[in-house]
Design a protein around this nucleic acid. Structure first.
Lengths: 340, 340
DNA sequence: CTGTTAGCGCCTTCAT
DNA sequence: ATGAAGGCGCTAACAG
């Protein structure tokens, strides 16, 4: 559609062969200064641009990386996306973005489509990844890296976060402040990380000699709305003095729920999140949370994918990155009377 | 790299010609049930997928649409992106995402790169778009549509929002509630929309017989942080009872600034935003704001681009969509004593 | 119903 | 230093 002119036209117009035009355009040696100049002049005049499909067909690669994200609206995926984009920028690879909207069928379709030679490799964020899809990826020998896998044992290269220690540290922070009645908001149950984070919470509690009260534990879908609703209920029914959420969005909902119940955060009620989304810093009070290095994760995964594409083998199939507690203003010692 | 099996291999293995395989795969008529079955069986066994590059080469298109966004983190652009992606999904076009990070040079580079035939068309969100770049797009006859142009008179197909009436309506809402000392947060000054929205604010005030106090008007960069800072200052110095912000992020900052000053929103201080980002609904109190139909805008722009690509002329070069006031809980009548 | 021919635009190989 | 031939994988258009 664009770049009408073809290499043949330029060749004709410049009075040389297509081959020479190709060499000149690609800066290959073997063309006199004179010819070079003439070809460039004609190419510019005709607005010639090499056709990408043709080039790809010939080269057997596309210069494209596919990213399969769950959702294009969650900051979580977008921070990763930024990291990926930053890394790819210096590698002359373009990014093809896809969202599955949490639909396994759509996910499979997209991967299948991308695997038709459209992309040189695929990056997936928390994909559902049915066995059949894994099989497809392996059969097609399509390089791929999974970021934040749902199950840690998928037989594909993957990058995950140290959820266990992250959550243990976040919980410990509340314990250190003196909290004992700590509620916990689990995330979606089909993510292995939800259980692992909870494990970190439990262990931190146990090691501090604290009881994990099951009535203070609830599950949510990672959303603000559910965090709000659930926390409001928890406060009404069981008066915890603090809550740990398996994701920042839920934590933000928890903060507002406490506020809606007339509690001051953090003096009456403390909240700890997980992720450190941009919104965690941009809220009032600033959210204390366990930081996942999302941008770094994107970069790291992209880098791994690029080496796979270049045919190198990865040092390790399963990469893991650490977390970091970011203390802001949503946490403080519990109120004196012990309950909210 | 991927898609090992080619049509020729399938043909050979199935004992038919490549043409027949093609027809079967594409569901074209003219193939006996028997042949069809055999071909399908072999194709499945070999894991055959038509190569996209080859197909596009043949078809004279790339199947790719480029999206030039300012930023991959702002919800504003992402809501539009979602609309675009949804529309493209049914058009067999993939989306190539690019961020310029507000850098005019980078923007030009990216457009130039895409214009090399990589994509069939380009969508741009609030691009800086120097004259030279416009010239390039025209010369290459690269179909493009601009969403939310910085200047309304760019000579390219574009889609903008009725900023004037939107802001007038948002302001009127506060006036109707009884506010008179209304502050205003302008957005970035190099967007024409910033002036147009302000115009709507001014006119609403004037028509209600209210003074626009210049000391209550300030400029910001669309960010939460600046909205917070500036509103805090405005409240300290001039005690308005309400504020209108040219964007939701600034409005969210304003809400938290008021809160930080000990004011209750909305009973002591009202806030009106502009955009209706997802966060506007997901905050406490819910933000009253002027809704831009971002998702629709993305769809509409994508649809326009697709018809341009198909060679159709657009009915109008400049499309405009309307806004809608969304009343939530950040606005209420001013406090009795008249000042904050 | 099925196969042959031809060519999309480019570039690798091998001559000249 | 330059060019001719051929093919990447696919599919119109036209045979048969």
């Amino acid at each position: 559609m664009a770049g009408r002119a073809t290499i043949a036209q330029v060749a004709e117009e410049a009075g040389v062969s297509a081959m020479t035009v190709s060499n000149v355009i690609n800066g290959k040696p073997g063309a006199s200064e004179e010819t070079r100049r003439r070809v460039m002049e004609v190419a510019a005049r005709l607005g010639y641009r090499p056709n990408v499909s043709a080039r790809n067909l010939k080269a057997g690669r596309s210069g494209l990386i596919g990213l399969i994200a769950l959702d294009l609206t969650s900051q979580y995926g977008l921070e990763i996306l930024r990291g990926v984009a930053d890394e790819l920028a210096s590698a002359e690879q373009e990014l093809l973005v896809n969202a599955t909207y949490h639909d396994a069928v759509r996910e499979k379709d997209r991967i299948e489509f991308l695997a038709r030679g459209l992309v040189d490799g695929v990056l997936m964020i928390a994909p559902v990844l049915e066995d059949e899809t894994v099989e497809l990826l392996r059969r097609q020998k399509l390089p791929c890296v999974i970021i934040d896998p749902r199950r840690l044992d998928v037989p594909l290269p993957r990058l995950s976060v140290d959820n266990y220690h992250g959550m243990r540290q976040g919980t410990q922070h509340l314990i250190d402040l003196g909290h004992t009645r700590i509620a916990y908001l689990r995330g979606e149950e089909d993510l292995e990380s939800t259980s692992i984070r909870f494990q970190g919470f439990e262990d931190a509690m146990r090691l501090a000699g604290l009881e994990v009260d099951e009535r203070l534990v609830a599950s949510c879908d990672f959303s603000y709305a559910c965090g709000f609703r659930t926390t409001a209920r928890l406060i009404d029914d069981h008066s915890p003095t603090a809550i740990v959420a398996g994701a920042d969005l839920m934590a933000l909902g928890a903060v507002d729920a406490a506020r809606a119940r007339g509690l001051n955060v953090p003096t009456d009620f403390s909240v700890v999140g997980f992720d450190d989304l941009p919104q965690a810093a941009q809220s009032f009070p600033g959210l204390t949370t366990v930081r996942q290095p999302l941008h770094d994760m994107g970069q790291k995964a992209a880098r791994a994918l690029l080496s796979l594409i270049e045919g190198q083998r990865l040092l390790m199939e399963h990469m893991e990155v650490g977390t970091e507690l970011v203390v802001r203003n949503s946490t403080a010692p519990p109120p004196r009377d012990g309950a909210a």
